[in-house]
Design a protein around this nucleic acid. Sequence first.
DNA 1: TAGATTGTTAATCGATTAACAATC
DNA 2: TAGATTGTTAATCGATTAACAATC
Lengths: 211, 211
Amino acid sequence: MKKDRKVIPQPVIGRLTKYLAYAEQATESGREWVSSKELAESLGLTRSTVRQDITHLDLSGMSGHGYETEALRKSLIRTLGLRKGCEVVIVGAGNLGRALARHKEFSRKGFRISAIVDSNAKLEGKKVGSLFIKGMDALPRLVQKNKVSIGIIAVPPSSAQEAADRLVQAGVRGLLNLACTHVATPSGVAVVESRTVANMRELCCAISMRS
Amino acid sequence: MKKDRKVIPQPVIGRLTKYLAYAEQATESGREWVSSKELAESLGLTRSTVRQDITHLDLSGMSGHGYETEALRKSLIRTLGLRKGCEVVIVGAGNLGRALARHKEFSRKGFRISAIVDSNAKLEGKKVGSLFIKGMDALPRLVQKNKVSIGIIAVPPSSAQEAADRLVQAGVRGLLNLACTHVATPSGVAVVESRTVANMRELCCAISMRS
DNA sequence: TAGATTGTTAATCGATTAACAATC
DNA sequence: TAGATTGTTAATCGATTAACAATC
């Protein structure tokens, strides 16, 4: 009899991923307990917020001790739907796309880069890490065959929308858009904009406001 | 007599950067007017929110027409404190660091990568784009000389905190952390966590909730 | 003028925080 | 037991939305 888990609000989800990163580190360093106090102080939140967030998990803490690190980690993985890894395809084999294809952190966190494609025919067949660059036409077949669910857009802003369209058409269910343009998608497809340039701008803004 | 500009709430700042990206594109394609309706629909917001946000700018729209694209763009640049570009240093000359050093979009948006450094002595002197990789020890001098205000952390999670410490010590005023670990900084230094892995996880989560 | 859109106020909605009894 | 921390409820705070007169 499953607890009927309601939809978790976006801001909460954002913080849950932070708790997960923290729990993973704590697990690695062999810490057995983590408290809401510790999480709050390390991540710049209040204890109330942390405890309120943890309400959304299927997890019980222990009064006086906090949460078992490993149980917290597992519960977060379950709740966030991260149990069974995830196949990814990268569109764009420029600097950024190639760097991501070889980025260790992805596989360490359960994401498998199953292909990298580019519209530039000259790049076709070249090797990136252990992958060979494929043409855009291969996209639908690659997505089907490898059960790819996420597409990463690593092309210049001017071709971002086209990349998105082709990925959606090929059947991916989520997009990570690294181009600093907004892309439009049908409502069934989740999009996260990476916003590196936007982040830099926000930094600039924060800096200039303080001086 | 300047309008006493109050602090702008973070969620608003986040959206202002989106309007800016939109206004830049609209400017490039020669569009003269942009309305709150158009912004809202393109970016998935309500018109009310857009108009409320624009309240924070020193800008007047025109009833029946909207906002002059160019005036909107300029006002956003002013308000976000982006008028005079920004010097940046990258720590970490791995795949990601090197890719960013050559990333066109940065310079196009007013960020100048003035140096790239790495703790691995073997990389010292190698060329990345038009830059030569320097050692970590060069950091303080580079930051002073080039008036660097932002440091990008592109090292493995395990050395992220150290990179942050050295950047702060060298005198940068903001950090963009691309490692998927939280880094702690003194309160005078702004930090934005890039969260690429976290974003991927949020995508996974969104996907798994829909199925 | 008619149509469209701004600027602004007030109402709603949701998220964060405070507080505390219950528990280990 | 005493100290610490959870889980939960209620209060506060802030952000989003709705609505509409004013304006081009």
